[in-house]
Computed example of a mutant assay.
Amino acid sequence: MKRKAIVIGATGLVGKKLVSQLNLMYDSLIIVARKPPKHMSAQMQFYQLGDFNNLEETLGNISIGPDTDAFSCLGTTKKQAGSDEDFKRIDYDYNLNFAKACHQKGVQRFFILSALGADANSRFFYNRVKGELEESLVEVGFNDLVIFQPSLLLGKHKGRVLENTAQRAYKLIAPLVPKTMRSRPIEAERVAAAMALTAQNIYERHKVSGIEDDKKKVTVIDNKQMLAMTLLKS
């Protein structure tokens, strides 16, 4: 059976790196975004989406199913979104709608980029929304749901002044920070590598067993684990 992957958030900091990784792993790579990736390969399919409110309709026209792994790196900041309401619509609603639509079409493995500190009971709005999304995704019922919780992402964030400033400050103290410290900032490429590696490991697990386990698995991979998984890639 040929392997497929579908990705939203493919033009973001981690998403761009993830697409490059997945392009080497899958026979077909489906990108759903407002604009196409800068580099398209023969196995990539691009579906332009002007409005994410129409995401479910767009997915209805795409051939995906049990042979497809779904990935989301979609996310924003409150400043970019403009309000709490718009932030939650992007980070929570769009991601959950994507997950539900994929599940309805038979997708069994879902990989989501969340954040360190995600907690539905957090007093911080950002962390609370991320935590609420994680809890809602568990209820969707994927055979494998994998949640990645990185710390501050290293890489150039277009339009994210505070994060870029934080990165510049971090560079001054980076030599003093242990490479596997739980909250150590992490390169976007390493997060993407951890996502791709985890997807491959799950694929190999099912390939060896020859069957899909009926027991639903929810795996949370935190920042420290991603640092350890990709230590040799730093």
Rank of each mutant, 00 (worst) to 15 (best):
T11K: 05
T11L: 04
G12N: 05
G12F: 05
G12E: 05
G12A: 07
L13S: 04
G15S: 04
K16Y: 03
L18P: 00
V19P: 00
V19N: 06
S20Y: 13
S20K: 15
L22C: 08
L22D: 05
M25F: 04
I31V: 12
R34D: 07
H39K: 15
S41F: 11
A42F: 12
A42K: 15
F46I: 08
G50M: 10
F52S: 10
N53E: 15
N54C: 12
N54G: 11
L55Q: 09
E56C: 11
E56A: 13
I62M: 03
I62W: 03
S63W: 11
P66L: 10
D69M: 14
S72D: 01
G75E: 08
K78F: 01
A81G: 04
S83D: 01
E85T: 13
E85K: 14
D86T: 14
F87I: 02
R89M: 04
D91P: 01
D91A: 07
A99D: 03
Q108C: 03
F111G: 06
F111D: 02
I112S: 09
I112R: 02
I112D: 02
S114N: 09
L116A: 04
G117A: 07
A120N: 07
N121G: 06
F124W: 09
Y126G: 00
R128I: 08
V129T: 02
E132R: 02
V138T: 10
E139L: 14
V140L: 03
G141D: 06
F142D: 00
N143G: 06
N143W: 11
I147Y: 05
L152V: 09
L154D: 00
K156A: 12
K156D: 13
R160I: 12
E163H: 07
T165A: 09
R168V: 12
A169Q: 05
Y170T: 08
P175E: 11
L176T: 10
S183M: 13
A188Q: 08
E189V: 14
E189P: 00
R190G: 02
R190A: 07
V191P: 01
V191R: 09
A193Q: 11
N201I: 07
K207I: 02
V208Y: 12
V208K: 15
S209K: 12
K216V: 06
I221P: 01
K224R: 15
Q225H: 09
Q225I: 10
A228V: 13
L231M: 13
L231R: 14
S234A: 10
S234D: 13
